[in-house]
Amino acid sequence: MPTRRQIFETRQRRRANLIAAGSTLAVVLAIVLLVPLAPGWDRVQRSFFNGEVFAKTFPGLLEAFLLDIAIFAWCAPLIAALGLAVAIARDLRTPALYPVKLAAILYTDIFRGLPVILVIYLIGFGIPGLGLPRPWNSPYIWGSLALILVYAAYVAEVIRSGIESIHESQRAAALSLGLSTSDSMRFVILPQAIRRVVPANMNLFIALQKDVALLSFIGPVEIFRQAGVYKSLLANFTPYVGAALIFLAITIPATRYADHLMNRQRKARS
């Protein structure tokens, strides 16, 4: 037998759901009915939502996307390693190692302060310009390096914020046992810090997956470039829509997962 309160809340909830569904339906209907009334709709539909072009180009786009995944796959571990190293370097307290700390600070300042595309241009065109022999003039190498340098700077800052979020008492407890400062860092502080910033780092890696497309500006024919090729070939923009769908198929689930992790962490901490 439900209580008075439960009956009231059930009724409230049903009402709220009904209103939400009704207003959503109204907006969708308005878009579906009104947009085609726009004077240019026929042209837009032909050049952006062309089913025939979509079917013809989608397999090729998917294949080109494998290159995006490959670039992501070799960049991600290097970014994680470099980001961790820089984060640790920024936390160094030994005076003799100050130059390393200073270099780490400069590095993060510079690479967080530049647009990714600019770094890709400077490194991707600049270094092969030295006249290096094959394969050392490959845009894959230098484009990837540009992504690694930029993203490792962000990852380093995220990890450093994680290190700083670990309460000083943990360090004191580790030191009081007689552990060295480096052992305290390695076994006590870092494992907690890295766990704490997993969701934030996941968001960075989702951004990286999208920014891989920027390498197309210096040569590699990945999905964005491939879509451009199809566009020129077929005089139609539909391949770009196809490429967008492929990106979303990866990034939306990944973003949702990161949000889920972040929520779980917030709940665990409260």
Binding site: A172, A173, A174, S176, L177, V188, Q192
Partner: peptide, 14 residues
């Protein structure tokens, strides 16, 4: 510190 153990008010377990 290896010869002198310490226990804290807030436990400070890892």
């Amino acid at each position: 510190r290896q010869r002198i153990g310490m226990v804290f008010q807030s436990y400070n377990l890892f």
